[in-house]
Design a binder for these strands. Structure first.
Lengths: 355, 355
DNA sequence: AAGCATCTTGCAAACGATTACACAAATCTG
DNA sequence: CAGATTTGTGTAATCGTTTGCAAGATGCTT
C-alpha cells in the first residue's frame, strides 16, 4: 500500500486525527461481513438474511455512511443519470418542462443533471461534453440547430438522446416535441380569419433560436398564403423579455400606418406589448389584437386575458424523460412523438375596428 | 480477466460487433504511449513533449474520446463539483441566483449539480444524500430549517456547505445571505412612516418556509413596536403566486374596514394584489398602498411601478459559490457574510387618503 | 441418514482513470 | 567531457464500488 489511509496496523481510524469518510470496507469490517454483502444490502436486500441486514444497516446508520456514486457508476457501468440541456432557467416555460423531466426521472430512480447554455452553441457543446464525461445514460436536448459532429460524438459515446421544443417536419432526429411552425400558423390564421390585414410580429432572435425561426417563417408564409405581404418594418426580433415586447409595440404604435394586430412569439413579450398599449391609450382588443405564445399562467391573470398558444411543456418533458428511459433500458433509439398545441382564444383578439 | 471486453488476444476491438466506448487504454495503445502520458495530456500538458502531445491528441479526436469523470473523480478524489439545492425553479428569483452560482462556479472549472426540493423537507434530505453520493465538494443550501442530523451527515462526509437566502441574526451556520427580518422591517417601517395605521400582510406559508416566517415576524413586531395591533384577519399565508395575492386582496377589500396598505412578502403576490385593486376600482396608491419583496424585473414594468425590497439574488449566488470554493480549496469552513437589501420606493406607496 | 435444492456469504477481478516513483535520455555546467 | 540537472515517459498501485462464481450452511425429501 503506497498511500495508506489507515493506521499501519490496519485498524479503523481511531482517535488519530480527522477520520476519513467511511468506505464500504469500513462498514464491512465493522459489521463482520464482506464488502459484497454490504453492497447487496443496498442493491439486492432480499438476498441478504434479515439478521445480517440489520447488523449492516446499524453500522451504516452509525457512520452516516454515504456510498460513492462515482465508484458505483464505474463498477456497474450504470449511472442512472440523465443529462438535460436548456437554454435558460429564467423563462418559466423551460422551468416547467424541467420540473416535469425531473419528476418523471425520479419516479424510476434516475437523477437529472441540468446544464444551462445561455443560448450559446459553444457553451452547449461544452455542457454536452461534460454530461457525457459524467456518463449520463441519456441526453435531453433543446432545439435542433447544432454542428453535426456533436451528434456524431454523442453517437460515438453510445448515448441515446431526445430533442424537445422543436419538432421539425422532416424529423431525422428523435424528438418529442410539437411543431412550432404549425402552432404559429394557427395563431396567424386566427388573426387573418378575424379580418386583420396589417399584422405585426414580435419574435425571438431567429439566428440564435430555431424555435423563433420556425415561428417567424410560419408568420411570413401564412401572410403570403393569404395574399398579404409581410411588412419588414412590422417585424421585430428581440429577446423574449417584457421590455422588448413593450419597446417593439412602442415603435409600432409610432408608425404612420400602425398594425391592427400583433403576433408575439412569446407571452412575456405579449404582455409587455399589452402594457405599452395601455400606456398609450390604445384599447386591447378594440384597437389592437394581440396573440401570445406559451400560455404561461400569467396569461390568464392579465386584463383582458391573453389569447395565446398553449404548449404542453410539462407533458412534453415528462414524455421525453420516459421515452428516453425506455430507450435506455431497451437499448434502442427514442421513438419520435409529436404533441399538439392549441390556440386558446381569450380576450385580447377581436375583429379590427372599422376605420 | 473474467469479463473480457476485448478479443482474447487483447487487440483493439475490431470489426467484431459494436465497438465499445474508447478508454484511456485504447488511446494509449493506439498512440503508442502509456496511459500516464494520455492522462498528462489532459491534466498537465506542459509536461508532455509537443510531438507526443500532438500524436495523442490526434488519436483522441479521431475516436471522439470522452474521458470518464467517474473514474477520474474516484482516482483523484476531486469531483470539481458543487451541489445546489433550491426549493423551486419556477420562481425567477431562485433562477437568478442559480444562474449566478453556475457562472461563478464555471469560471473556476467547477460544475454545479442542481436539486429541486419542491419545498419538501424529505425531498431535500434525499437530494442532499444524492449529492453527497456524487461526491460534490461543497453544498449550497437554501434556508435553514432542517433536522440537525442532516447537518451531522454533511459534516461526517467532510463536505463544506453554505446557506443562502436566510441569514439568521444568531447565525450558527455558515451563510451568505441577507437578513429577511430586517428587510421586511424596512418595508413595514416605510408604510408606517407614510401614516398608515391599518396594514395587511400577504405572505408565504411560514410553516414550510423559514424566509416567510422571518418576514411575518418582522411585520408583526414592527406593528407592535409602533403601538399598532396586528389584525389576524388581515394576515394571509398563501403560496407565492399571482392568484394567491389576487385572492387575498379580494378578501381584504371585502372587509368592512379595509386596510389602507398591504405588505406582500413577494412581488408576484403584490402584482396579483395590484390587479385585484385595478379590477375592483381601488386606486393604487391613492386608496391602497402596496409594497412587494424581491424586486423582480417585472416590478418596474407594471403601472404604477412597484415599491419593493431589492434582494441581491445574483450577487448572493456568486458570492456564495466563490466563498464555498475558497473554503474547499483552503480546507476550511465558509466565512459568513451578510448582504444588504434596499427598500426601492416607486409608485405603489403613498400616504393614506384622508378618510 | 444420505441426497438435493435453496439460501447466504465470501473471494477477487474488474471498472477507467490518477499519480508517486523510478529511470533513461537530453541538456546544461564548468 | 564527466557529472549534474532537467525533461519526458513508463510502471504499477490505488480510488470504492459491483458482481460472476464457488462453496459452505441450512432445510427438505425420501
Amino acid at each position: 500500500m503506497r498511500r495508506p489511509r489507515l493506521a499501519p496496523d490496519g485498524a479503523a481510524a481511531g482517535a488519530s486525527g480527522a477520520p476519513s469518510r467511511a468506505t464500504i470496507h469500513d462498514i464491512a469490517r465493522e459489521a463482520g461481513v464482506s464488502t459484497a454483502t454490504v453492497s447487496r444490502v443496498f442493491n439486492q436486500p432480499e438476498k441478504v438474511s434479515a439478521r445480517t441486514r440489520d447488523r449492516v444497516e446499524a453500522v451504516i446508520a452509525r457512520h452516516h455512511y454515504v456510498s460513492d456514486a462515482l465508484a458505483r457508476g464505474l463498477a456497474s457501468r450504470r449511472s442512472r443519470t440523465l443529462g438535460l440541456v436548456i437554454p435558460t432557467i429564467m423563462n418559466s416555460i423551460y422551468a416547467s418542462s424541467t420540473q416535469a423531466i425531473q419528476q418523471a426521472a425520479q419516479e424510476v430512480g434516475y437523477t437529472v443533471l441540468i446544464g444551462i447554455s445561455e443560448f450559446s452553441a459553444d457553451e452547449e457543446a461544452l455542457l454536452i461534453h461534460r454530461l457525457l464525461e459524467r456518463r449520463v445514460q441519456g441526453l435531453i436536448l433543446t432545439g435542433r440547430e447544432r454542428r453535426p459532429d456533436l451528434y456524431e460524438k454523442i453517437r460515438h459515446n453510445r448515448t441515446p438522446f431526445v430533442i424537445t421544443w422543436r419538432q421539425s417536419r422532416e424529423a431525422a432526429l428523435p424528438s418529442i416535441s410539437f411543431d412550432n411552425y404549425r402552432a404559429a400558423q394557427a395563431a396567424v390564421a386566427h388573426l387573418i380569419a378575424l379580418g386583420h390585414r396589417r399584422i405585426g410580429l414580435i419574435c425571438g432572435r431567429s439566428d440564435v433560436n430555431d424555435r423563433a425561426l420556425d415561428r417567424r417563417r410560419a408568420f411570413e408564409d401564412s401572410l403570403q398564403a393569404a395574399g398579404l405581404t409581410p411588412d419588414p418594418s412590422l417585424i421585430f426580433e428581440r429577446s423574449f423579455e417584457f421590455v422588448d415586447g413593450r419597446a417593439a409595440m412602442h415603435t409600432m404604435l409610432a408608425r404612420p400606418e400602425r398594425p391592427t394586430a400583433v403576433f408575439c412569439a412569446n407571452d412575456i413579450q405579449a404582455i409587455g406589448a399589452m402594457y405599452e398599449c395601455q400606456e398609450a391609450g390604445v384599447a386591447v382588443p378594440r384597437d389592437m389584437s394581440i396573440v401570445g405564445f406559451d400560455d404561461l399562467p400569467i396569461a390568464r391573470y392579465v386584463t383582458p386575458q391573453l389569447t395565446t398558444i398553449r404548449v404542453p411543456a410539462g407533458e412534453m418533458g415528462a414524455r421525453a424523460a420516459r421515452a428516453l428511459i425506455d430507450a435506455i433500458e431497451a437499448g434502442e433509439e427514442v421513438a419520435p412523438c409529436a404533441l399538439v398545441t392549441d390556440l386558446v382564444v381569450r380576450g385580447t383578439t377581436a375583429p379590427p375596428a372599422r376605420a
